[in-house]
Design a protein around this nucleic acid. Structure first.
Lengths: 143, 143
DNA sequence: ATGAAAGTGGGTAATTGTGGGGAAAAGTAA
DNA sequence: TTACTTTTCCCCACAATTACCCACTTTCAT
């Protein structure tokens, strides 16, 4: 179970650390791919396989599901950790998500998301501001 | 079951004690997360899992539920108690809830809320003054 | 009054984040 | 092929942070 928000820097070699708590769930294998809202998704191997099965089951006839499947599958790479718990982010994924020097690793239960500093901070701000909607959502869920 | 209002100080290392009565219900695992009205929520593991299941069931395809889920899960961290019964409050949650040196821990049946001294005292004042309205609400709810 | 429990502060060892060096691999040209 | 350059990747090292443990003081109950 991934939770929380962590800040890391990406060095000149393109390496980025992930939180130790996340590593234990990913050490048996992980996949990085393009995500929604210009971030990257990182899945553990098991979660990835579940997702991949769902993806290939999507109706080929629909243009937007075709596009979604291509986004996720074609962008996928498997991830290796070095001894310090860092991963190497492929160039095309860095470009896709506007990653430069600073990044956030965000735990979302069954996946990890990687965001550029700027993108995440503005996204969070935008969401927090609509706190009325947030309260509404929470009421719906019975919190 | 959490009840009552307790006052504690947060030390330089960001540690805050919780009432011994609360600890026994949280020692098997606790999650701290963003709450409403700029306070923090602390849930026992079981309560949290109920909530988390509802969250991950929300549709990934919808932009605003994506945002809500991200806010809730990224804002959550699991909490460990040290031998003295203190928890470490993550920096970004301290910022979110304006926590500095003094704080209240408040029991609300199935969750604990953590408020900054100032925020809680002014909130309480405001609420107590408008107790007429509160009574009105209660009648609406059939209490 | 005395013992136990709770609140708060601090010290030390372990872990983590991050930079860099060097070996192995891959590529290139004679 | 061979010699040389370039790139990738693995491992080491250091500084800073964190986690863990201990100790003191105060409060409360018997």
């Amino acid at each position: 179970m991934f939770l929380g928000e962590y800040f890391y820097s990406i060095d000149e070699k393109g390496r980025m650390a992930l939180p130790p708590k996340f590593r234990v769930n990913l050490k048996s294998g992980a996949i990085i791919t393009r995500g929604l809202d210009e971030c990257l998704f990182v899945f553990g191997l098991k979660e990835w396989e579940k997702l991949a099965k769902k993806l290939i089951a999507l109706p080929l006839a629909q243009a937007n599901s075709r596009a979604f499947v291509r986004l996720m599958l074609a962008g996928a790479m498997d991830v290796k950790f070095d001894l310090q718990g860092r991963i190497l982010i492929p160039d095309f994924l860095k470009k896709y998500s506007s990653l430069a020097k600073d990044a956030y690793a965000i735990g979302l239960y069954n996946r990890v998301e990687i965001w550029s500093k700027e993108k995440w901070e503005s996204y969070k701000l935008k969401t927090e501001k609509s706190s009325g909607e947030v309260a509404e959502k929470m009421r719906e869920l019975g919190i």
